[in-house]
Design a protein around this nucleic acid. Structure first.
Lengths: 220, 220
DNA sequence: CCATCGAATAAGGTATACGGTATACGCAAA
DNA sequence: TTTGCGTATACCGTATACCTTATTCGATGG
């Protein structure tokens, strides 16, 4: 059941969602300049909520100030991807190990979330991104610690700007996303924190390798 | 030479700083209700920059929405302190271990930052907070990874609302803040990631214990 | 005294106007 | 052709007005 909460949604929230979607789907590609007046005209609303949405995206490091003229959609370099994956290394093994240590409800939560997500649609870049994020996020959610969640989100929000998700999708014939994550779930249920930490670290290392595979191909 | 950059400060930035200071110094105590119109009048500016500042503090979890009426300054419960310290456990041992692994410039940065901070003034709650934060933050800064830094800041920004820093200060006769952190620096220089991780974890555990000591005293 | 209803008020989201600053453009002089 | 200067324009931060919604308050009736 999906609770209807759109009565609480502000124009700023809607603007944020629209701009974020544009970034993820390449409508607003890397390096694109976002001017609040233009976006306001395009979205048919005033500048105020657009300004808020842009500030939020800035805080999430999805965009960066473009001098005196608006914002620029950030493009993640290889070096920055390395940093993202290093940061993932700080939190995801920690979280998975803790889930394994606790077992019980925490592990069950990871399992049930995974089973729901296995059959979720993954035909667009956005869907791939959201499912991947959700699978990893559930291992942190299971710990019921808002700080850990925010730390996770710090990384994954910016990952939105990593257009490599669409690129990985292009080579999907060689990548089975749900099955790649099954070891995560099994580790969560293992009761062995050391094993869980190891599985998470290896998964992250392998994930970074997927990006490398793409980078090795010529850009047309 | 200090570059003059105050021309870049907006009223929203100034409002943020003022409100944050009020929260840390108890002028705006826990549970206090912040209404943007009141604050605007008090600060002598319009609602717009105040609104921005409040949103920023909200995102940093220093304040939370108070239903339809403004924001409430959050008070950290014991349970939430536990979560903060757990989250610290994810990132600070990771960072210190990495500094130890790298050694060289990273370890030197931690040492030099520490030596600067040892003699920094620590007579007010704010000063104690800032120095403590800076010492721990430098172990993350040394890694030059903005994601790790943001993860660190996610925890420590909210810690601003932890008024226990002033309380710990009251019992300072039994706490030597700089010396408490010297093992951190030595671990950074040790070249031993496992040792560094252990030192960080123990330091965090001991730090949580300081809060407990306070909580055990009657509240007058 | 308590419950209900309508009006007033409080508070915030949004639209729009104003002003400041940086940048771009056009023109004249060297 | 290049450089410098003045003007116009672009863009954003801020102030203020307007509108909506929720809450509070006061009056009335049972």
């Amino acid at each position: 059941m999906k609770k209807i909460e759109f009565a609480r949604e502000t124009l700023a929230d809607a603007a944020y969602a629209q701009i974020a979607e544009g970034i993820l789907t390449h409508d607003l590609g890397p390096g694109a300049r976002l001017l609040m007046d233009d976006l306001a005209a395009r979205l048919g609303i005033s500048r105020t909520p657009v300004r808020e949405a842009l500030h939020r995206l800035e805080m999430e490091r999805v965009i960066e100030p473009g001098g005196r003229r608006g914002y620029i959609v950030r493009e993640l370099t290889d070096a920055e991807l390395d940093k993202q994956y290093a940061a993932r290394g700080a939190i995801e093994p920690f979280a998975l190990a803790e889930v394994a240590r606790r077992g019980g409800a925490a592990a069950k939560y990871v399992r049930s979330t995974f089973e729901e997500l296995v059959s979720a649609p993954q035909t667009t870049a956005m869907e791939v991104f959201l499912v991947n994020k959700a699978i990893h996020r559930c291992t942190v959610e299971a710990l019921d610690n808002e700080y850990l969640l925010s730390m996770f989100d710090v990384i994954w929000q910016t990952a939105m700007a990593a257009h490599v998700w669409a690129d990985i999708l292009e080579s999907r014939s060689s990548v089975d996303f749900p099955e790649m994550h099954r070891p995560i779930v099994e580790a969560a249920e293992s009761g062995d924190p050391e094993l869980a930490s190891k599985v998470a670290r290896e998964h992250i290392l392998a994930g970074r390798g997927l990006h490398s595979i793409h980078s090795a191909q010529p850009v047309v």
